[in-house]
Amino acid sequence: MRVEYINPFVEAAFNVLREVLNVEIKRGELYLKSVSQPVLGVTSIVGLAGDVEGRVLFDMAESTALAIASQMNGEKLASFDDLAKATITELANMITAQAITKLHDLGFQFDLTPPAIFTGDNMQVTDTEIEALIVPIEMKFGKIEINVAIREKN
């Protein structure tokens, strides 16, 4: 993945999460991955188009997703219902949008698709011919793995 894309995503994730959740956030070591990988339970996906093609996945356990949704709504949500789903989707949208804005300032043209959310056990995600950058983020609610796969249109 082009190096200029890395920082905007890391920074945007960090800023947005710290702002909306108001908790301490730690970033793990970044790494690359190319094979199928398990999905933790709740995954929000935002597609990218424009100068590039690709997508961003936000992957977390259901308990983490529920805790985050509760914190963002300011009330304790009992189950992972529509409101919780909408909240996580919005979070994904906010982070991706901020990253895209930063990239736009650097002169890269990106468009994003409306986010979608997947829930369930034992899911895997596979990208063929495109490698993903993994940004692990840890906080007291659990872990979010941001999985960014972007490639240039040749």
Binding site: M1, E129, I130
Partner: peptide, 15 residues
Amino acid sequence: VLFEYHDILHGTTLP
């Protein structure tokens, strides 16, 4: 020059 964070063992798509 275009710099990429990329592992060549993962396969590379270029023209």
